[in-house]
Amino acid sequence: MNRSAVTSAGTGLDEDGYIAREGSLARVPDAFRPVVAAARDRVLALFGARLDSAYLYGSVPRGTARIGRSDLDLLIVLRDEPGAADRTAVDALESALDAEFEQIDGVGALLLGRERVLSSLETYDLGWFVACLCTPLLGDDLAEFLPRYRPDGLLARETNGDLALFLPRWRERVAAAPDDDGLRRVCRLVSRHLVRTAFTLVMPRWGGWTSDLGEMAEVFARYYPQWGEPIRGAAAVAYEPVADRDLLTSYTEEVGPWLAAEYAAAHGVKAPREPVVRSGRAPAGSPAAP
């Protein structure tokens, strides 16, 4: 299957009009190569023959990671369904890598079973995530068993058509944040999710893909200029989180509810499914629920 990285300028599509896989091991910045090598070796040692595949995603394989600011995002797929002990082991792996390497600001790992990733229910969410946003690190590439993807309404619905479910959880997290650091963590999570949802709302009309939050906000603003500034602001604080409870309240009480309703009207609501159980911190840009 052709997973060409040749893209049309500014659209994130390959020469056939499908979303091109972003990132590659060749793009990993030199400063992050020791982290990636350690992660690869330790994941393999941890799971051995049970490991189906492992992937990088996010800023590190895209080549945009910032030293001391970016986290390392991993997807680990087992041949069988992971259990509680597996997630505990991955928690320990995350903590060890984070403590050892100053280049990264945390590690986030999704731990899943092969059957779920390749299930029909997940074809346009986890499947798309693997095929388009993940860079193979270990094992077989499950993208070979998945379709190619266009930036259409089905993809929009199944990736971000569940925003309404997040709003009550975000309100609880804002209320429970104990200090400024806690508020900044919530700010990073919520703002990124809002920007990505705003972008995928208009993605089918724009006809392309990008993972750059600033570009996502600008594309969205072309179609909804009246909401452009809040989403541009969310893109800014996604990169430089702030401890601003009032701003977060505006996201959960104004921007989020409008966006959820507009999204449902445009694309429908995502098919119900079990949430992705993740270890440690939520990896940015993954299908994991906050």
Rank of each mutant, 00 (worst) to 15 (best):
V117E: 08
D180S: 13
D180R: 11
A164W: 04
G113V: 04
D181M: 07
D179M: 06
L110W: 00
L163Y: 11
C134Q: 09
R188I: 00
T159W: 06
G113T: 05
T123N: 12
F166D: 14
D162F: 07
G161C: 09
D181N: 12
F145W: 14
T123K: 06
C134R: 05
L154N: 13
D180M: 01
R150Q: 13
T123Q: 15
A109W: 00
L118F: 07
G153H: 14
Y124D: 10
V186H: 01
Y124S: 11
P168C: 02
V130P: 10
D162I: 03
L146T: 03
L167Y: 02
D140G: 05
L142Y: 11
N160Q: 12
F129G: 09
D141S: 12
E122S: 04
D162H: 12
L155P: 06
D179L: 05
D181K: 11
P136R: 15
L118N: 12
C132V: 15
C132H: 05
S120H: 12
D181S: 14
Y124K: 04
A177V: 10
Y124E: 03
L154E: 15
V190G: 00
Y149N: 04
V130T: 05
G182Q: 08
P151Y: 07
C134V: 11
V186A: 10
A177N: 05
G139M: 03
A176I: 03
G127M: 07
L138M: 13
R116W: 04
D180I: 00
L183P: 08
